[in-house]
Structure formats: C-alpha cells, structure tokens
Amino acid sequence: MKLVKPQTKAYSLILRYLLFLLMFIGYGVFELFSQSFEDAHDQALGSLGNYELLFSNQYFWDSLLTSINITFSSTIISIVLGVVLARLIYFYLHQSKWKYLIWIPMLIPHFVAGHLILLFFSQSGLISRAFYNLRWINHMSQFPGVVNDPWGIGIILTYIWKEVPFVVLMVLPAYYRQNKQYIDVVRTLGGSKWQVFKMVEWPALYPIVIETALILWAFVITAYEIPYLLGVTYPKMLSVLAYQWFYQGDWSSRPIAMALFSVLTVFILMITFGCFRLTQSGRFRSMRGR
C-alpha cells in the first residue's frame, strides 16, 4: 500500500507551483496595485486619485488606442501568416530539411530585430540607399518612412518577422496530431481545399491558435524595447509612456504609471479569461468531433 494517495501527491505538486507563483508574481502584483493607490507626495494609501488622473489624461487614451491597434495588427497578421506557413510545411515541405530555416528569426533577440529593421528600412537605411543608387529615388528622404512612423509599421514589421516562426512552432504539432484520414474523407466526398481546412484542420488548430494569439497579444501590448526604438514621440505605446512616467525626474508621476500598469494587468487578465472560456468550449466540441 502506498503511503501517499496519488490525489494528495497531485495537490502537493500544484501547491508548490502556487507557492512559487504567489511569492514572486503575487507579491509583485500586490506591490503594483498598492502603489497605484499611493499619493505621490505623502505616500498615503486609499485614494483613487491616480486612476482619475489617468482616465482624464488624453495621452493615456491616445497611447491605449495606438497600442491596441499595433498589437492587434501584429498579432492577427502573425497568426494568419504563421498558420499558412505551417500548412505549407505540413503538406509540401514535410520531408525537407530546409523547413528548419524558418525558425532562424526566433534565435535573434527582439532588440536586435528592431535594430535590423532600422538598418534596412530607415530613410538612411540600406534599402533606401540601394534605391537611391539605382536612381529610383532622387533623395534618400523620398523613401517612405516606415520606421518611426505614426502608424507603427516598423513595429508591426518587426513583430511579424519575429512571431511568425513562433506561431509555426506552436501550430505545427497540432497539424501532425490531427487525424489524416478525416482529410481523405472530405476529399473523397468532393470537398475543396477550403472545406478541408474548415472542417478538419481548423477545429484541431483552433484552441492552439487562440492560445498563441493570447501569448502574442499580451507580449506585444506590454513590450518596451521595440516601441521605444521604432515608435514615435506622440503617441507613445503604453509601456514607453509608463516608463517615462515612472522615471520622470521628481518621481511625482510614479503612482500614475503604477495605475496604468494595474489597468493593463486587469485588461490582460480579462482577455485571458475570455479566451480560456472560448478554448474550453472549443476543445469540448472538437473532442466530440463536430
């Protein structure tokens, strides 16, 4: 007879993880929230003033809008391209060793990737220089400004380049796991490629795609280095704005920066919860094979 019941063992494993989570992340989040209620001057607790200041701040709303735009664009484009690529690899490059090349961008740190985009796409960058030398443009400044541009094209480009391989990495196993016979069934019944995708591939991919999108989304909306490097002076993306407030000379804007991060944390938690619900029902459906 075993001394410890398997169930107890499972609980103890979870408990260890929870302790770790509470100690490191929980404490950080607790400090974040408590500092967001502090008064900038006497550090007294219990005021909502920082949130009032934050929500009445036009810079915050402009930053939020820009951040959401850039985050959604880069997430959705990365996901679509990543799924298309994974599909190509699954169906056509199955045997090829070259498929591993696609993961090269994952080896490069984000900051370096941002610098590469700057090196190639800035107005004095390599592409602009090449166009100029080929006489396609008369001045290097005629090259369209895609970095440090108000629409965040440079930021989105960097994230797509970095995240598409990640999406492929996440999605490809789902392709290999799916039952290939379903594809043959749809084919024999005269289904098109699109119907194969819709009826066989998508239900298998769906939960993992949502999960991946969530990871990307949460990563991009709180990222600092790429928006700092490739963003514009106004409006700055949320983390750049928060950093600026946090380190502002006299430290008076610190609590507002904390309030901003608190809002962002709650926002991400809400979206995570929503996605969790979605994928749970999705998994259930795909399990029943509908």
Binding site: Q123, G145, D149, Y228, V232, T233
Partner: peptide, 22 residues
Amino acid sequence: WKKGQTYPQSLTQLDQMYSQGE
C-alpha cells in the same frame, strides 16, 4: 526631420542620424 511628426528618442539616435548625413 520627418516633418516633425516624430523626434529622435535620444541623443544616440540623433548622433547616428548625423553620422549618416540624415
């Protein structure tokens, strides 16, 4: 530069632009 739509984030960036003749 860039019609004033954005400004260099730091002196380092301005130095880089100056060294490249931008």
